[in-house]
């Protein structure tokens, strides 16, 4: 069975006024049907650009290379009509901030029903009935009233559930969830994750979960890709990754998560330094300046992504031992 989404050697760069800014450097990633793949990394590492590239929503000044195949068909640089037939129907995206990602002057009902009117050719009446059923499924309380309300009349958690419900209306094969819980407080986060998990089981939807929140990822993902400065530095099954991180960056990222149990550290662990400027070319490993294990080789040659045992891949000259 071929994967639902197959990204090969994807590169995205933005042509600026005087410099070319590389947002994504030769990233490859597969998502099988019904699989949840997480992409984690710091802000600005290229996670959101990756989603937008798949959706075909990158701005006009983006230079894109490589290949993105959806259900076996190449969709990179596909004509707009072909993308519009996929978007919202078989390929959907949940955006980071549901406050600004919903149209302020249209009711929730209109914004949801229009997807079904467009892709399923339903009448408005029928589409609204289906939209209402979906709102109930994603556990929006008082759903009938919410249909007639505007986004600003809903709470943040409800808006995000509306976003999730909207993306699932046509039972897509793949949902790209870009930081779906970042704008929410912790109790709402848990509810939203529960909704995503249920929907995945119900519709066998493949999910690309983009997050910098490792606790969200741990609760949902089958496989995790760790991105740093536009590159994938480690990929592994979720259980392997959270048990034994092999890349020093992954390990550092995990040690930054505060823990409730165990001794209280004198201060929260942080990762010193900053990611490299994406406008500059780095000769060796992009993480070398911040890494505790840097050798002379790291600053000279960029480490290729290579397989270790099992499904783990790592781009490091000195991977951590198991």
């Amino acid at each position: 069975m071929h994967p639902v989404l197959s990204i090969e050697n994807l590169s995205v760069a933005f042509r600026g006024a005087d410099a070319e800014i590389a947002a994504i450097r030769r990233v490859s990633l597969d998502v099988a049907a019904g699989e949840c793949v997480a992409v984690v990394g710091e802000s600005g590492c290229g996670k959101t650009q990756l989603c937008l590239a798949v959706m075909g929503l990158l701005p006009a000044n983006a230079a894109i290379g490589g290949s993105i195949r959806f259900d076996g068909r190449e969709i990179l640089a596909a004509p707009r009509a072909q993308m519009n037939a996929l978007r919202g129907a078989r390929l959907a995206m949940i955006f980071q901030d549901p406050q600004s990602a919903l149209t302020p002057h249209l009711t929730i009902g209109t914004q949801m029903a229009e997807v079904l009117v467009l892709h399923r050719k339903l009448r408005w009446r029928e589409a609204e009935a289906d939209a209402l059923a979906m709102l109930r499924r994603v556990r929006v309380p008082d759903a009938a009233r919410r249909m007639r309300q505007y986004p600003h009349e809903l709470s943040g958690g409800m808006r995000q559930r509306v976003m999730i419900g909207m993306s699932l209306l046509c039972e897509p094969d793949l949902v790209l969830a870009d930081e779906p819980t970042t704008a929410l407080d912790v109790t709402i986060q848990a509810q939203v994750i529960a909704v995503l998990r249920e929907m995945r089981q119900e519709f066998r939807t493949g999910i690309v979960l983009v997050s910098h929140d490792l606790s969200v990822v741990a609760g949902l993902a089958d496989r995790v890709y760790v991105m740093y400065a536009g590159c994938i530095v480690e990929s592994a099954a979720a259980a392997d990754l959270f048990g034994h991180a092999r890349h020093p960056y992954t390990s550092a990222l995990m040690s930054c998560v505060p823990r409730i149990s165990g001794p209280v550290p004198p201060r929260l662990a942080t990762l010193p330094g900053q990611p490299p400027n994406p406008a500059e070319r780095v000769a060796g490993c992009a993480f070398a300046p911040r890494c505790a294990f840097t050798s002379e080789r790291c600053t000279r040659a960029p480490p290729p992504l290579r397989p270790l045992e099992g499904s783990t891949m790592v781009a490091c000259h000195h991977p951590l031992p198991r």
């Binding site: 959706m55 919202g88 995206m93 955006f95 149209t103 997807v115 467009l118 892709h119």
Partner: peptide
């Protein structure tokens, strides 16, 4: 350039619908 127009594009809406239904009023 606003996020909700990006959402509308992600739904696969044609340009005319995006302009007239989602963009014109604001």
């Amino acid at each position: 350039g606003s996020p909700y127009i990006r959402t509308a594009m992600a739904k696969g809406l044609p340009l005319g619908t995006i302009v007239f239904r989602h963009a014109l009023r604001p």
